[in-house]
Design a protein around this nucleic acid. Structure first.
Length: 721
DNA sequence: ACAATAGGGATTTTT
DNA sequence: TCCCTATTGT
C-alpha cells in the first residue's frame, strides 16, 4: 500500500495527523463528526505500511468493545490481512489480558473471576448488613459508588483518612471488608482490573520494561473519558522512547460522574511533551444550522480547549423547536413527525429519539405502538445480565472455582432445594470466622447441621462435584448444555408460569450458542471456560441476535455518543430535567450537562428537532417546568419555533387549526390525527387521538368551544371535514 | 416457598 | 407512576 492510498480523501489536518513522523507524540482534538476514527485507523496503517512497524508494536485502546471491534475490522480491511497479534482492545480488556498472563505477579489466583456491577452491589449490601448498617441511612448504591470512586483514583482503603465524616468512616469499613472478601473469593471488579494491572506493571520493572519496549506506539481513543488510573496506566507505559497518539474532544466529555477526568487531556500536553496538537474542525456530519447552533451552545462553557467546527455542506433545515403542553403532546409531535418522514420514504432506522433519562422513553413507546411504527429501545438488560443467564453462569463459575462466593450464593438454593436462609447464614458465619470460602465452609459444617438441612446441603455439594466430574472431558458448549439441565435450571424455567413465551429457556439455549461462537474465536492463552466467563462480564452488548435495523431508535443521550442519525429528536428540554436538577448548583456539573446537550445535538445529520413540555407527569405527579436554559443559548436564527395553543403565551389563545398542522397523521379509515371533524352538538374539532377498531373505536377530539372529549366513533355521528 | 402487600426511591452507566 | 425490596401471611 502506498502513501497516497492512505491519505486519499483526507483533509489537510487529517492527513497531517496520520502522517506525523513516528518520532512524534500527538494529541488530536477531534470535534464531533470530524472523522476521528478514520484518522486513528489510518494512523495505524501508516505506521505499519510506511514506517514498517511490526503489528506487535502497536497498542490501541478504546472504551467500548464496539469501538475496538470496529477498529479491528477497519484495520483488517485497510491492511487486507488479519491484524492478528495487534493489541486493539478496551482498557478493561487489556487489563484483563495482562492479569491473566501474569496472575502470580499480580498476586491473584489464576482462576480469578470478574465481578460485574450487580455482583458488586450484592456483596456490598451483604457486608453492610453484616456490619449492621442501616440501608435507609446509607444507601448501598452510595457506598458502592464510594468504593468505586476510590478505586478509579487508584486509592486503597488504607490510604484513606476517615476523618470525622461519618459516611466516609462507615463506607471505609465496608471498603476494607469488601477488599478482604474479594481476596478470599478470587474476585476482582471492573475498577480493580485497572488498578491491579497498573500496579502489576509498576511493581515489576522487568515486565514494565518489556511492555514499554514492545509498544512503540500507544494510541488512545476518546481520551477525554480516561479516569485517573487509566491516565496513570498510559503514563506508566510511556517511557519517552515510545510515542502516544491520543484522540479526544473535551467538549464531549460526559462521563465525569463515572470518574472521567476532563483535565487529563490538558495534563497530557505537559506529561507527554513534546506533543504535537492538531485540531480537526471540519465537520462532515451535520448541516450548518445544526452545527452552528451546537457551537453557540457549547461556547457558554468556560475552560474549553477551544475549537470551532465548520462545515461546507450548507445551512440545511432550521432546527424545529416544539413547545408541548404535556409529555403526551410532545410524544405526539415527535411520533407524528417521524410518521411524516416515513411517508416520505425515510427509513425508520434513520430516526432517533434521544432523552436525558430512561424514564422518558415510555410516552414515546406508547405513541409509537399506536402508530404501528417499529422501534427499539437501547439500554435495557444486557444478555449476560439476565437472571437466567447469570444463574447458569453461576453454576459454570462454581464448577470452575468452588471458591467463588458470589456464584455460590446465587445458586446454592436455586432452583430451590431446601437450603434455607438459616443454613446459608451458618455457612457464611463459618466462612468468616475461618477465613475460608463458602463452598469449603459448607463442606465443613455439614455434619453439624440438622438432618434435613444437612441432607439438602450434601446434595448440593455432591451436585457440584458430580457436575465437575461429568464435564471434565467436555468442551465449552457441551459443558453449558450439560449444566443448564443438570442444575435443574431448564426444568425450573420451563415450568415458570410467569414466562409464558418461554423466553427464559430460549435464552438458556442462546447461551449454548454464545459458547459455541466464543469457541470459534477463542483466545488460546487462557482456558476456554475462564475466557468465556470473562467475556460474559466484560461484554455489555444486548441481545445476541440483534434486531434488524428497520427501527426507530430510542436511547439516552449518553448511549448516543459516537453515533449519528439523519433525523434526531432531542426531547425533554426542560429545566430540572435537562439540565438535571442535581446538576444545577454545581458549575462543573452544569458544564457537563451542556456538553451532553452538545453531544445530543451533534448526533443529527440532516434535521434536528428539539422539544419541551410545559407540564410533565413525572414520579406520579404533574410538574410545571421552564424551558431548558440550553434552548435560550441557541441563537433564534437557527430555530423554527412551533407553539401550542395553550402554551405559555396567553395571547396565542386562538382557534386551534394549527394543531400538528405540519404533520401527516396516521390514518384509520377516515380517522386521522390532526383531521377536522364536525359534531352535531359540540361543533368543529380536531382529532387528537384514537384507539380501537370498528364500532369500538374511541376518538379523542379537541372541540373549539366544548373542550377535549373522548367519544365512541360509532355513536358520535362525526362528520369528517 | 411463594404470593400478596406495603413502603421508599426515582440521572446518566463505555467496563 | 412505576419498580424494586422487605415484610407478612398462608
Amino acid at each position: 500500500m502506498n502513501l497516497s492510498e492512505i491519505i486519499d480523501g483526507l483533509n489537510n489536518e487529517q492527513a497531517q495527523s496520520v502522517t506525523l513522523d513516528d518520532t512524534q507524540s500527538a494529541l488530536i482534538l477531534a470535534g464531533a463528526g470530524s472523522g476521528k476514527t478514520r484518522v486513528l485507523t489510518h494512523r495505524i496503517v501508516y505506521l505499519i505500511t510506511q514506517k514498517k512497524l511490526h503489528t506487535d508494536a502497536i497498542l490501541a485502546v478504546t472504551f467500548t468493545n464496539k469501538a475496538a471491534n470496529e477498529m479491528r475490522e477497519r484495520l483488517n480491511v485497510l491492511l487486507r490481512r488479519p491484524i492478528g497479534s495487534m493489541w486493539v482492545s478496551t482498557f478493561h480488556g487489556l487489563a484483563h489480558r495482562l492479569l491473566r498472563t501474569h496472575p502470580i505477579e499480580a498476586n491473584l489466583s489464576p482462576q480469578f473471576q470478574i465481578l460485574d456491577q450487580q455482583d458488586q452491589y450484592r456483596i456490598v449490601k451483604r457486608l453492610m448488613k453484616e456490619n449492621q448498617m442501616d440501608e435507609s441511612k446509607f444507601p448501598v448504591r452510595k457506598v458502592q459508588r464510594f468504593i468505586n470512586q476510590q478505586k478509579d483514583e487508584g486509592i486503597h482503603p488504607n490510604d484513606i483518612e476517615a476523618g470525622y465524616n461519618f459516611f466516609v468512616k462507615k463506607s471505609l469499613e465496608i471498603f476494607k471488608r469488601y477488599e478482604a472478601y474479594c481476596h478470599t473469593n478470587n474476585l476482582i471488579d471492573f475498577s480493580e482490573l485497572l488498578v491491579r494491572s497498573y500496579e502489576l506493571l509498576k511493581n515489576n520493572p522487568v515486565l514494565l520494561t518489556h511492555y514499554q519496549t514492545r509498544f512503540a506506539h500507544i494510541l488512545v481513543d476518546e481520551f477525554q473519558d480516561t479516569n485517573t488510573v487509566q491516565y496513570k496506566w498510559i503514563k506508566l507505559l510511556f517511557n519517552g522512547d515510545n510515542k502516544v497518539f491520543c484522540v479526544g474532544d473535551d467538549d464531549q466529555s460526559i462521563y465525569g460522574w463515572r470518574g472521567a477526568k476532563i483535565e487529563n487531556i490538558t495534563k497530557l500536553t505537559q506529561d507527554f511533551a513534546p506533543l504535537k496538537t492538531i485540531r480537526l474542525e471540519q465537520n462532515y456530519r451535520s448541516t450548518g444550522n445544526i452545527l452552528n447552533a451546537s457551537n453557540a451552545l457549547i461556547a457558554h462553557n468556560s475552560n474549553r480547549m477551544g475549537k470551532s467546527l465548520w462545515t461546507d455542506s450548507g445551512d440545511g433545515n432550521l432546527i424545529d423547536l416544539y413547545e408541548a403542553r404535556t409529555e403526551i403532546d410532545e410524544a405526539d409531535f415527535v411520533v407524528s413527525a417521524i410518521q411524516k418522514h416515513l411517508d416520505n420514504g425515510v427509513s425508520a432506522s434513520e430516526c432517533a429519539i434521544l432523552y436525558r433519562s430512561n424514564a422518558q422513553s415510555r410516552g414515546f413507546e406508547e405513541r409509537l405502538i399506536k402508530y404501528n411504527i417499529s422501534y427499539v429501545i437501547y439500554g435495557g438488560l444486557r444478555f449476560f445480565e439476565r437472571a437466567e443467564i447469570k444463574d447458569a453462569l453461576g453454576y459454570l463459575r462454581l464448577m470452575e472455582t468452588t471458591a467463588d462466593g458470589v456464584a455460590f450464593e446465587r445458586v446454592v438454593n436455586f432452583p430451590t432445594r431446601g437450603i434455607g436462609a438459616a443454613t446459608v447464614e451458618k455457612i457464611r458465619e463459618f466462612a468468616r470466622e475461618n477465613q475460608t470460602n463458602l463452598f469449603q465452609a459448607a463442606t465443613s459444617i455439614v455434619s453439624t447441621l440438622p438432618t434435613r438441612a444437612a441432607n439438602a446441603l450434601t446434595g448440593f455439594i455432591q451436585l457440584i462435584e458430580q457436575m465437575q466430574d461429568d464435564t471434565q472431558h467436555l468442551d465449552l458448549p457441551e459443558k453449558v448444555a450439560y449444566l443448564i439441565k443438570a442444575s435443574g435450571l431448564v426444568a425450573h424455567y420451563s415450568s415458570d408460569k410467569t414466562d409464558k413465551a418461554g423466553s427464559k429457556t430460549a435464552n438458556l439455549e442462546e447461551l449454548i450458542a454464545a459458547a459455541k461462537e466464543y469457541q470459534h474465536e477463542e483466545d488460546n492463552d487462557m482456558s476456554e471456560t475462564l475466557g468465556f466467563l470473562s467475556l460474559a462480564s466484560l461484554d455489555s452488548s444486548g441481545d445476541a441476535n440483534s434486531p434488524p435495523a428497520q427501527n426507530v431508535q430510542l436511547m439516552t443521550i449518553h448511549s448516543a455518543k459516537g453515533l449519528e442519525f439523519p433525523y434526531v429528536f432531542l426531547t425533554g428540554m426542560e429545566e430540572d430535567l435537562f439540565p438535571s436538577r442535581q446538576s444545577k448548583d454545581e458549575p462543573h456539573l452544569m458544564s457537563e450537562e451542556r456538553r451532553l446537550c452538545y453531544v445530543g445535538m451533534t448526533r443529527a445529520m440532516k434535521k434536528l428537532s428539539l422539544s419541551f413540555a410545559i407540564k410533565r407527569f413525572l414520579h406520579g405527579q404533574s410538574i410545571y417546568a421552564y424551558p431548558s436554559r440550553f434552548l435560550s443559548e441557541i441563537p433564534e436564527k437557527h430555530l423554527n419555533q412551533i407553539k401550542q395553543k395553550y402554551g405559555a403565551t396567553p395571547q396565542n389563545y386562538q382557534a386551534d387549526d394549527s394543531f400538528n398542522q405540519e404533520i401527516t397523521p396516521s390514518a384509520n379509515g377516515q380517522l386521522s390525527i390532526g383531521g377536522t371533524v364536525k359534531h352535531a352538538k359540540f361543533g368543529f374539532g380536531t382529532i387528537l387521538n384514537f384507539e380501537g377498531d370498528g364500532d369500538s373505536t374511541r376518538v379523542q377530539i379537541k372541540f373549539k368551544t366544548a373542550g377535549t372529549k373522548w367519544l365512541i366513533s360509532a355513536y358520535a355521528k362525526l362528520e369528517f371535514v
